[in-house]
């Protein structure tokens, strides 16, 4: 990925800390963050909210044919984690032995490198999850 610096920087708050949104009108949490609440539309009142760092595996798969930048990490797992507040997050699973990766298993957020712009570019850090 070329010149991803603006993208990495704009996303750093939610990638570092699972910072999402909360609609004060209907009480719904969102991740990633939203500008407008799709339920309340103009009546919605969106404010930033940190998502809970723990959840359960809702679904998972193992990646063998990786996108550019992840080729050397194969095979690796990605999963949809259903957080404690019901919000679902797509993430890489790390440090988790195969036998522990099951639907319903508890997973916790950790801080990792996600991708980098070659040897000289910016490194994107962010959340991944590990089964506990």
């Amino acid at each position: 990925m070329k010149n991803a610096t603006p993208l990495i920087w704009r996303n750093s708050a939610d990638r570092y800390n699972l910072l999402g949104s909360h609609c004060a009108t209907c009480g719904t949490d969102y991740f990633p963050e939203r500008v407008v609440c799709p339920k309340c539309r103009r009546k919605g009142k969106i404010e930033p909210k940190q998502m809970p760092p723990e959840g359960k595996i809702y679904s998972f798969t193992q990646v063998h044919a990786a996108p550019t930048g992840f080729e050397h990490e194969t095979p690796y797992y990605i999963a949809i984690i259903e957080l404690a507040n019901g919000v679902k997050v797509l993430t890489q699973l790390v440090d988790s032995p195969d036998e522990k990766i099951k639907i319903g298993a508890t997973a916790r957020m950790c801080f990792r490198r996600v991708f980098e712009e070659g040897d000289e570019g910016i490194i994107a850090y962010g959340f991944k999850f590990k089964v506990v």
């Binding site: 440090d95 950790c110 801080f111 990792r112 490198r113 490194i123 850090y125």
Partner: peptide
Amino acid sequence: ASFDEDSCTFAVEASR
């Protein structure tokens, strides 16, 4: 350290 870890990720985990 695994492929996606470095001294920054260690520092964040310990600091948290």
